[in-house]
Every structure is written in structure tokens, then in C-alpha cells.
Design a protein around this nucleic acid. Sequence first.
DNA 1: GTTATAGTTAAGCATATGCTTAACCAACGC
DNA 2: GCGTTGGTTAAGCATATGCTTAACTATAAC
Lengths: 116, 116
Amino acid sequence: MLNQRAPLDRVFRALADPTRRVMVDRLSRGPASVSELAQPLAMSLPAVIQHLQVLEESGLVRSEKAGRVRTCHIEPAALRRAGQWIALRRASWERRLDRLGDYLEEDEPSNQRRRS
Amino acid sequence: MLNQRAPLDRVFRALADPTRRVMVDRLSRGPASVSELAQPLAMSLPAVIQHLQVLEESGLVRSEKAGRVRTCHIEPAALRRAGQWIALRRASWERRLDRLGDYLEEDEPSNQRRRS
DNA sequence: GTTATAGTTAAGCATATGCTTAACCAACGC
DNA sequence: GCGTTGGTTAAGCATATGCTTAACTATAAC
């Protein structure tokens, strides 16, 4: 069971590293083996596997072993939660702008509501 | 000038800490002084200021000093870039599902396109 | 059975991080 | 001018992180 204690900590921390973002980007286009993930990266294989472990602990990636090959898949739910956290903060910020706009409109009817 | 070299590194790293997410959440509802940001946090003032520095380096937050009070504001552009990075990867994943769906539909016309 | 391949684990190292306390500075209020 | 308030900086500490190499294991190919 995914650690529920600090999932967003782990997700954002996982994405804080450029190597892991490359891996997430690759897996968003389809599953890949560890060797395939490692191929474009200029680092040792154990280093890639360490990054993979961080991604699995964060819930962004899932993997299974078949024979000697471990295949990795994206787990979109964790990406969605991070995206939702950001979207909610942006919505909060924009709601505050709307309230400012409403306030200004009491005095300046020509003022238009702003959207970003 | 904001460091352009690794902006997403810094943004995701900034968001990887629960204290900083609390600060970003608070600022998404409107500006706040350093003391206001520190008030709900169980840590020393210099620690809060260190977190603030990480948020400013990431571009998520901007602050200015007036007299002895430093007021902090959210900077939505950096949040938007992080949100966009996530949205593009989710779109990539979903595009791949669509192609799988198209492929399956060649044999099974009753199969319906799936959306998440 | 041997060799090659895919991957794993452990130990070590350098660097980064997150917090503390102490000391300090600038501005406000009285 | 003094005390209070808001904030800053530096140093130190414990822990976390990201990479390496070496050694190893399991599986597949021959």
C-alpha cells in the first residue's frame, strides 16, 4: 500500500530531479524496461535503479519483473494528485482576483473581469 | 533574473517540503508578511526565512520590504509551468491510450473510447 | 555447462538540506 | 533615546541525497 503519510512530499521530491523527470516523460509514452530507461542517461545502472526506487516510492511509477527484465509503467493517479494540488492553488489565486475585480467593478463598471 | 537553467528542478524541489506547500497555499489566498507566514508553523523564524528563500529562488514567490515588514506574494507563472509539465505528461499518456483504443476498435467496433 | 545479459545490493563519498541558537540590524512606538 | 517588533545572517549539526564502484544474482542464449 502506498505510503499515505506524505504522498505529495514524495511526488514533488521525485519530480525535483531532472533525471527522474526524463524517466517520467519516457514512461508517459509507454512502458519501458530498466535498460531502456537507462539508455539515454549518462550515469551508472545502479544510479538509474536508485532513481526508479524513488519514483516507485512516490507512486508515480509501478514495475514488475518477468524473467530477467523489469518493466516500468507510469501511474497516472499520482501525477493527477500533484496536478490537482497545483490547480487548486491557482484556482484559489484566481478566485481572489475575481473578488478584487468584483470590488473594483462597483466603482468602475467598464472594468472587465480578467482570466488567465 | 530568475535562473533559467533548472527552473523546474527548483519549483518541484520547493514544493517537495510540506512547510513550503503550506506557505504557497497561504499566499495563493493573498499576500502575507513573513510573520503571518510563520505564525502557524512550529519552527524558528530563521527557518521560515530559509524556506522563503527557497520559494523565491524557485520563482514561486516574490517579496518586497516596506519599512521593517517584508510582504510576500505568489507568482502564478512558476506554478503554471509546473502544472503544464504535469498536464503534458498526462496528455501524452492519454494520447497513447487513445491510440491503443483506436487499434482495438479495428477489431471490436463495440469497444468504446475511454477517458479519465 | 558456460557465457552474456539484465538487474540488484552494499558501502563509501561529496554535497545538499532543514533545522537550531546566537547575535545582530533596521524600523516603529512611546 | 529606549524598548519593542520584524526580520536577517552565520555557524553548526544531523540527516538526506545522488552518484560511484565492486560484487553479486537470476535469467536467457548458445
